[in-house]
Design a protein around this nucleic acid. Sequence first.
DNA 1: ATCATTATAGGAAAATTTTCACATTACGCA
DNA 2: TGCGTAATGTGAAAATTTTCCTATAATGAT
Lengths: 356, 356
Amino acid sequence: MKHKPDPKRPKIGLREIAAEADVSVATVSRVLNGNSHVDPAIRDVVRDAAAKLNVDLSQRNKTKALAFLLSNRAMLHSFHSRILLGAEAYCAAQGWDMIFLSFHYSPNVPWKELHLPKAVQRHDVVRAVVLAGANSANLLELLDHKGIAYSVLGNNVVGGPKNLKGDVVFSDDIQGGQEMTRYLISLGHRNIWFVGNLRLPWFARHFEGYSSAMIEAGLVPRWSGLEFEDETEMGYINTKSLLAQGEACTAVLAGNDQTAHGVFKGLRDSGLKVPDDVSVAGCDDTASTWLHPGLTTTREFPEQLGQQMVKLVLNRIAQPSLAPQVVTIPTQLIKRESCSPLLASKELASVKTGVR
Amino acid sequence: MKHKPDPKRPKIGLREIAAEADVSVATVSRVLNGNSHVDPAIRDVVRDAAAKLNVDLSQRNKTKALAFLLSNRAMLHSFHSRILLGAEAYCAAQGWDMIFLSFHYSPNVPWKELHLPKAVQRHDVVRAVVLAGANSANLLELLDHKGIAYSVLGNNVVGGPKNLKGDVVFSDDIQGGQEMTRYLISLGHRNIWFVGNLRLPWFARHFEGYSSAMIEAGLVPRWSGLEFEDETEMGYINTKSLLAQGEACTAVLAGNDQTAHGVFKGLRDSGLKVPDDVSVAGCDDTASTWLHPGLTTTREFPEQLGQQMVKLVLNRIAQPSLAPQVVTIPTQLIKRESCSPLLASKELASVKTGVR
DNA sequence: ATCATTATAGGAAAATTTTCACATTACGCA
DNA sequence: TGCGTAATGTGAAAATTTTCCTATAATGAT
């Protein structure tokens, strides 16, 4: 029995594309699903043939799943879990599934030697990748070379995301650090220290904002950045070290809330009160619930970041030739009790008690 | 050209099964992938035919993905994100993928009216479900009826998981609550209050342990359980209410760490010190990093819970006829600074300052 | 350089999945 | 009750994916 003979479309299938490209149907099928073992040249021939026949290859592939790759994290802490939820919610709304993968790799291995999780390699399982956690250039290069669509959280790319073919979403923590620093200055503080490991991109960005605001006010940016695995510990040790060296310091800008928690501990251990003796500000608003006194911090919007990453990557699936997209999500200054105006008397007190 | 004619296996394919069951290959394919639209009777005929031919249908299905369903949670907090990571790690080690889904439903809707996420319904996408978050009987019944394999975190099933066909993993918080209560009693406390909303199963279980330990010591279990959405707030309000009513209280057992945090706040607000005036204990060890002083609590092992849930559900996929499996993971008492021995003088102080 | 060995690519055929059309049953509604 | 309409279920055929196998290229040893 015949099918609809030709109402409008001549019913183009793999057979027709194969004929146009002069290969077998099997090969067209392989190209469609990115099933490896296809010569790039042939792949392009097939794609051109499909284009000539006016077939949208991406529409034919029915797998509707993205991978959410949490890179190099033993813990899924609050910030990233909120990114995950934001991403999942948007995916679900668009009818896509999301495969969650935790993935560990070294930033130093050249990209050719990296070994992707198998689900990501299979174009018939996962159509694109959303990268959270801490990433580095080698993985991005690998994805570029393999032609796998992705979007990445720019803040967490070691060395910053440069020359990518993929899409990037930023949280504007440079702006956030700048705004926060201006705020501290407006409270009268002059001896403002930054605490954070500048080798980590998210600290480095925040520091950049801090730095520019300090310079703009004619002040000298200063930071303490002894490196520790645990960020709370890092905040703690750097605070103690800073106090031990007798540095003048009336305010601390911590690279994130977890670090600020360490700063709290360090100050408390040294008999200093927040904010009476030292003002403390954080960044990312993940610890606000827990800390006492309430932490003045820069709120970020992780759910939005997750949603945007998915949005961009779905765009790209629809239009693979799109130029790299970059989106920056603003941040918001949240004032709580951990920062207070610097009074002359207070500065004196601080110097007297905290510093030798 | 012929294939291997018959080295050992007569090369059984869908064609053979179809002949045996006297249906079309298409139907066998549909049964294999649970592609809905197959009459249950025919489905069973096909399965029997396959069994007769000694074919393991579950082996033929190549989709290797589980769904991780986070039920009724707006946030993915620490405890559940650790379950997720534990589950993912074990999945990955076994070569399975995990689809992350957030899902909201009412516990009151009868199961027939619940609407599952579409990925879960498609047997060709997801082979089984791991249930975290807060669940209720209706969803479990629905899965039972649909014949979808699942494992669930028993602690978080409203009303307790009863008469299930699926598998259950428990964290032994009853034991934990009991052990903790005995510890507080051993410190000399007699007026020990439980704070938690007993309608929530995880609080109820913990309370059960508390209760049995109190009774065994000849003491009266007492609790404060005003209900609030936010658990920190719940801890706070109940503490204030308890103090306002002038109850004698030298130790508080909070239903979880987040609640304990609220208790800390409530006590601090009332000018009471932990542990000098009141000892506080938590449960689940999720807030230990944040609180000051360090919270004595019951450590649970969420990564293990996640791993076990996956393990059980993979077992079941391999052997669908297995009797319901139940696993209980023990807990561990962690002593920190928030609990101290009751001294006669201290009890006096507590009564004096805290209670009108 | 020559030959063996291995890895990759791609076609043909087999296996499986999906589509399409039709049969059957369920469901309102006059 | 009977009729139209919708929903479900199925086989046959079409479409697609996968397997199996050969041809060719790449690598390495002598």
